[in-house]
Design a protein around this nucleic acid. Structure first.
Lengths: 254, 254
DNA sequence: CTAACATTGTGTATTCTTTACACAGAGTAA
DNA sequence: TTACTCTGTGTAAAGAATACACAATGTTAG
């Protein structure tokens, strides 16, 4: 078989999900050879209009016509999994310096109609404002996470898993800042947490909590264009965070 | 290529790590075809003699002669990832009803000398006493996690990742009981936590904590064969745990 | 059979963390 | 100038984590 096609180069084949002429051929070959394909799928979250959004395209697999699909691609033979995920991100969003983390492998037989494909799901967080969608093929755009119509393949399951992962992760690690501009108000930060965790938080306690962690730096600037008293703008201090000693090892509770 | 070999059946080929005559041929074929192989590797933990143990075999890949290796195998073409992991467990330990969870995919190029193989790591917890090692080939046996000599492939990295995962997971979910006999004393439970988390805990606070969770049932029995006052034996009540409502959604801290 | 030993079982005071809650200040818009 | 909206702040109460000591129970050695 033609390994040249399998180890697809750069933007040649679009995605295990998005599809383009070649991918189907590749998958057909995999299937007829009894080979398991490997892909990555990126769940790319953004935060806009006080809502958590996810970046999707229209699937062009016939079985999933008009269904939404995650961004993914087959893994190139000579690239690491992480690299493959970064490549997908780069190709789709034009962004390089992006938060990206592996979440889970999905490998049910029958999850892809064309062939056996195991996919490694990655979760990515990007700032919608800083970001320009490059390739707008397949109606690439942002969707509310909470009100999603049906999705292609098992992508709903993948998305749900990543969302749950995010809800947990954001409470233990400072990921959230990747979704915000570099300078943000505490209100924005709280909106972010409220949206992702789907909960209302007490404003004063929320502030107290973050200030006591001592990781926010006052930029000295204020919000502009708000129709009320402007709030202070802060920035997250990654260095301080790195240096901080992780204690709290012990918290048995279930 | 011969898909019959690739989709290895049952006990035919032993492992991406353990190897047996066929596996090397399969891998060679994968490599020459430019195909990425998929395996599962199980990090099987046990608890014995107040220490956390892991089940390993001797690698018989020449490059890793005399190095220890996790238990794994190529994923069969028609089985789910989880099934493949269960199969490995069953074949090696003879146990079916075992705690097993996917932890992470490892897919660095070059992680396997014979071919490109992406492996999905699973973590498993078993009670050493309840369990009989079935196939003792390749010097299958238990090793202390803390004092491990060099390992084959990137298996040390995989093991470390699973260990860290376990340390975290055991604090949030009642996994630990899988490592203990059905009936256990509080001292045994505490030893387990102390060993895994590598920390000393206050006995009275530990008890208070577990009793307040209200998930331990007094069996009415006592320890036997201890050279001192025997402690009560408890059992973990899974049903109560299932019914318990999960609250504590909110714990931002990093 | 008694004394020494080892480990179980228990409660309270202190500190830290989380929660609940209200009012003055700053800017905007009419 | 007033009404409006959101920012910024502190305290009291409840709950959780920690530190800590002594009597009870069984075993073992003399």
């Amino acid at each position: 078989m033609n390994t040249e096609i399998l180890s697809n180069k750069g933007t040649a084949s679009k995605d295990a999900a998005g599809g383009q002429k070649d991918i189907k051929t590749i998958l057909k070959e995999l299937e007829s050879e009894g080979i398991i394909g490997i892909s990555v799928d990126c769940v790319i979250f953004g935060f806009d209009d006080n809502e958590l959004k996810v970046l999707l395209i229209k699937s062009d697999f016939q079985q999933y016509e008009n269904k939404w699909s995650l961004l993914g691609d087959l893994v190139n033979n000579h690239e690491d999994l992480d690299e493959a995920a970064y490549r997908v991100l780069r190709e789709r969003t034009g962004m390089d310096d992006v938060y990206l983390e592996q979440v889970k492998a999905f490998g049910q037989t029958g999850r892809h109609p064309a062939a056996r494909v195991v996919t490694i799901a990655y979760c990515s967080l990007i700032n919608i404002e800083h970001h320009q969608l490059k390739i707008l093929a397949n109606e690439l755009h942002w969707h509310r996470v909470t009100t999603l119509s049906e999705m292609a393949f098992d992508h709903r399951k993948i998305l749900d898993a990543c969302y749950v992962w995010l809800q947990k992760r954001i409470q233990e690690h400072p990921l959230g800042f990747s979704l915000l501009p570099k300078k943000f108000s505490l209100r924005e930060l709280q909106n972010l947490y409220e949206a992702i965790l789907d909960v209302k938080l007490d404003r004063r306690n929320f502030r107290k909590k973050f200030f006591s962690m001592d990781l926010l730096e006052d930029t000295g600037e204020l919000e502009t264009d708000v129709p009320h008293r402007p709030g202070k703008l802060y920035r997250f201090n990654y260095e301080k965070y790195q240096k901080k000693e992780r204690k709290k090892w012990f918290g048995i509770d279930f």
